[in-house]
Design a protein around this nucleic acid. Structure first.
Lengths: 349, 349
DNA sequence: CGAAAAATCGTGCCCGTTCACGGAAATTCC
DNA sequence: GGAATTTCCGTGAACGGGCACGATTTTTCG
């Protein structure tokens, strides 16, 4: 039971070399003759030696780096929360010989994403955290990371590339499903003839829409439960605020059910304020400050939210665990809880 | 960005004492004058010093102990898997200055449970893993552990005492719900008039039945979907095998729907073999070898299983994380996936 | 006041690795 | 064969903190 710990010295003695040599073969950084390398390997084998993690961690000089690839967040935007979580996680693992670094890009400019990827790769991180915002760019990055044996963790949404190390985020499909259920709760079929989805015009560059599967979940629920319901889209362009109200003209007062699948429900808050419609139900996602304001003001009925910061926070912790001691996460896919926020439970969220 | 790490020496210098003194106040083990203790605390504060975890772990002599309180498992029994997981976890954290110890008791004898608790407390563990088999005994142990600030992790089932450190197990209610759904899948209401639940006679000593909420989930589903269905119980006594077939006389061939909520569906396998009934559906829980055999033989239709070992395994890892570096688990309640096993997918589970 | 006891405190070794440095051995080359 | 390389390998100083031991200071008390 009480087995003596075997150290690098024991191995060295057994192999008839010095601890320096053992260390060299352990980290196979050369400068060892074939013969003694063999002897050392044999000794390690026979003694069943495992290096002491703590000693190793204490002595090691180089600090590993965890990179985070994120859009440059505008103030109050969704990505700001993601970044905050990442920074918080970074603070937690600082002092463990782990540094964290942000690589940001312009979310409307795919070429800036590619440049950020290059920088990131050049910096040789030991692990990467990223939301797969641009599909192609992400895929290309992912394959390079895989080749270099660098683990990467998706947050927010995930690509099904089979090689990601872990995922932290909302179950997107279910969140859409939930959204539909909440939107139509206790409504009669004749009250659910028409649903308006407000969407963002994206320029072509953005090859992937992270909310597609959320939309699918939503649509599936509606089709299942209200086959006669039509789902129509209104597109708005956030870069031209003055155009928004024009586009929303279509949102006439008798259209009662409104949703947005991204985090920007606050964009239509102004319109809703100026065009009230009793009994209207508006559901959005994510607890951005401005969304919360709209919720408080009664412009938005419900928000489906998550503790966004925790995703990237946990992503960092998971990676650092793996980098330091090789520990894999309990689950590869980690779904956060979908919180339902209304005016009633919005306080101290 | 590149902040110099502050060590215990820096603190000592700043406070005008030696590192020995700093160390003493850090672990407040006395022998320090009020005055210099104050100076040291101030220095720590000002320098924002945090001890280097690795150095500390490397230097520290005493090894912490994680205890596991388990019923003495009979071969092939459910608890054997739990124990194996615990041992596996123990092996993983051995060499991290963490030892694991089993405290076992007779699951039919509450006084042996209490004795085991005493032994456990006397051994001063740094963390405890346990299934809350005896409710009263567990509650009393839990309150003592809380008072001593020793974290404990429930596996298998949990008590809602609000103070447990984490829980690893199946979502019990849902598992019952799932069980009912599977049992009645694609059956017409007139086919679901009668469900038989086979249960174990427990002597009074066993104050808690871990499967109650599973039974609730089951009942709720049935009541919801088949309000006309009656649920009847048959009690068997595993300590008197010869009595089992007598009790099961009531299970006549025309009664097609049979479930057991504990892990012992194998107990009725013999009876089912001798009294076949075409179209009968039998659902049990947990992948015990003998259950798997019954599944393979077609006596049991489905098993709802989980990777039992992983519960206790993860419990150990979680505790060791906390003990060593103070890290809390991502989620307090960790539900394992409910695997549905049939003859078709039983291989290499 | 001075010795004994008690309260404080400093010193130095240890934990098991990593890694730079320089020396020894083997190889190459003239 | 001897000098110049090249290849290999041993040494010892970190790394930052725990803790035993003994030294120093303060307190107690006759």
């Amino acid at each position: 039971m009480e087995e003596k710990k075997i150290t690098i010295f024991d191995v060295a003695a057994r192999a008839g070399v010095s601890k320096g040599t053992v260390d060299r073969v352990l980290h196979n950084r050369g400068e060892v003759s074939r013969k003694s390398a063999e002897k050392v390997r044999k000794a390690i084998e026979e003694l069943n030696y495992e290096p002491n993690l703590y000693a190793s961690l204490l002595a090691t000089k180089k600090s590993r780096m965890i990179a985070c690839l994120l859009p440059e967040p505008e103030a109050g935007e969704y990505w700001e929360k993601v970044r905050n979580g990442f920074l918080a996680g970074g603070a937690e693992v600082a002092g463990l010989n782990i540094v964290t670094r942000l690589f940001s890009y312009d979310q409307y400019d795919p070429s800036s994403f590619d440049r950020a990827c290059e920088n990131l790769l050049a910096a040789a991180p030991a692990g990467v955290v990223l939301p797969p915002l641009f599909k192609n760019g992400t895929m290309s990055l992912a394959s390079k990371l895989k080749a270099m044996d660098i683990p990467y963790v998706y947050v927010d949404t995930k690509l099904e590339d089979g090689d990601y190390f872990a995922y932290f985020g909302m179950p997107m499909y279910q969140s859409g499903y939930l959204c539909a259920a909440l939107l139509t709760e206790r409504l009669e079929p004749e009250e659910v003839k028409d649903v308006v989805v407000v969407r963002i015009i994206r320029d072509k560059s953005r090859q992937s829409d992270p909310t597609v599967s959320r939309r699918e979940g939503f649509t599936d629920y509606i089709l299942d439960h209200f086959p006669d319901c039509s789902i129509s889209n209104i597109f708005i362009d956030p870069s031209r605020p003055e155009s928004i109200s024009k586009a929303l003209k279509e949102l006439t007062p008798e259209r009662k059910l409104v949703v947005m699948f991204n985090s920007r429900i606050h964009l239509i808050a102004d319109f809703l304020r100026r065009n009230p419609s009793p009994g209207r139900r508006v559901i959005g996602f994510d607890n951005l400050d401005r969304n919360m304001d709209a919720l408080r003001d009664g412009l938005v009925t419900l928000l489906i939210a998550q503790h966004t910061e925790r995703q990237s926070h946990n992503a960092v912790l998971t990676l650092s665990d793996y980098i330091l001691v090789g520990k894999k996460p309990l689950n590869r896919d980690n779904y956060v809880h979908m919180d339902i926020l209304s005016r009633l439970n919005i306080d101290n969220y």
